[in-house]
Each structure stands twice: as C-alpha cells, then as structure tokens.
Amino acid sequence: MLDVAATGPLIDVRSISKLFQTGEETVHALRDITFGISQGEFVSLLGPSGCGKTTLMMIMVGLTSANTGEARIGGRRIDEPFTDVGIVFQTPELLDWRTAQENVLLQIEIRRLPVRNYIERARALLAQVGLEGFENKLPFELSGGMKQRVALCRALIHDPEILLMDEPFGALDALTRDQMNLDLQRIWLEKRKTAVFVTHSIDEAVFLSDRIIVMTPRPGAIAEIIKVDLPRPRTLDQKDAPEFSAFTKHIRKRFMDLGVLKDG
C-alpha cells in the first residue's frame, strides 16, 4: 500500500505535454494537462481517437515519458514504470500457448511471487467473471469477451493499487460490452481500486465513472471534467433515465462544440 497523504490525490498529473516526432513533422499530442485522481475513484478519459488518451495513461504510470510536466503517484514522482498497477489493453494480449489460468498467473510469475499461493485466487477471479470451467482452455478456444475477461483477471490477481484500462471493451459487440460494463462495475464496487478507464464511448464513460475527463481533439487538452453523481450500483435500465441522459447529452453537446461530432 502506498502512503497517501489524507488530502492529496493518489494520482497527480501536472501540466503534462507530449510531442511526437514523425519525420520532419512535430505533432503536439498532449497540451498542458493537469488533474488529480483520488484513491478508490473511477475516472474515465473520454475523447475522440488520436487525442492522446492512451499516451496520457501511459505517462501516468511511467511507461512513456512526457516532454514537460510530471506525474506523481502517492506523492512520488514517476520516472520509471510504476508497477503497483494492473493494465488491460484493447486487445487481450494473452499468450497463445498458455491456458486462461496460466495467462492470469503470468502476472505473478513475472513479479517473482510464489505462483502456488495464487492459484486459488486465480480460479476464484476467473469464476467471478463467469469463466468457471474455462481455466484450462487455450486462448483460441475462447471468445473475444472471454479473452478480455481473462485479461481483466490478470490485471487484478496481484491486487494492485491502480487499475488501468485502455478501451478494454472497444473491440467487443454491443451486448458483450454491456455485460462487461456490468461485470466491471460489480468487481470495482467490491475492490474499490483506483481505476482509470480510457474510452470513446460517452455511454460507457457515464455508466462507469465517478468523474469523466473530457478531452479535445489533438492536441489533447482537457475540455471539461464532469462529476457523475449517479447512485451505484448502476443498472442498464438507468441508461434511459433522464438523469443519465442529461450527462450523455451534455457531453455530446460538448463534442459538437469541439467539432468532434457534426450534424449531417
């Protein structure tokens, strides 16, 4: 556990900018981003493709460096990869030659923790996301949604302080996606991890988040930070409720103003 000052945010991002050099051209990917995320909070980074959401998330945990500004976790400046974290990417990134359970346990092996002690936990986690009986299946025997569930278990098995998700359900069909949202909410409510969720689905962001950081098109900057104070656990039915659609409407209007969305 990190030693977090009672008042300060767990993740503290201060005036971060990022430039990419592509041949002759310099692309401004992120511009002067500042925000904080409290411990146990679920925050979404919402914005159009290519606005630097993923880059920002990687900078937060030291997997990429920023050109200016700094990220701090628990007050400590991030200069190298921060490892008390679990990451889920858009693609499951499972190893073909490992079973579901072995893929989950990769996290433990790489960290050089005693694998034996985590086998029960891996099975319990897999059962929790509805994969009981699939522990010994190889990835090619699993559906896209199942693989992503395995990836989620792999991100949680070591009980990390922070859970990062980079459009984890972006490649799934709408129905599977809804189910995954429900499952993720349930698991998050149980464990109350600090979660950062990158998405370009307005619906998904509102459904899952405590706060949404809305980003502008490139160069990515913060357009608005929205607090979603809907009660939890949220249900799919709630998506039709006026309180819910007030948020989605507001964000959609914001994207219209930014030119991300245009009426036909």
Binding site: L63, I87, F89, T91, L106
Partner: peptide, 27 residues
C-alpha cells in the same frame, strides 16, 4: 511480438531476460 505485450511486462516490473524467455522466444 506486440508492443502491448512488452508494455505489460514492463508494468509487471519484468526484466529484459523475463520478457525474452516468457514472451519473445515463445512468440
């Protein structure tokens, strides 16, 4: 090898040695 896989290993605090034996070579 996919860069995301390697990023995953880095986020686990894995070494170059581990990423070679567990990911790169089997891939």
């Amino acid at each position: 090898v996919r860069p995301e896989s390697l990023m995953l290993i880095r986020s686990m605090g894995g070494s170059r040695w581990q990423s070679f034996w567990k990911i790169r070579l089997p891939t």
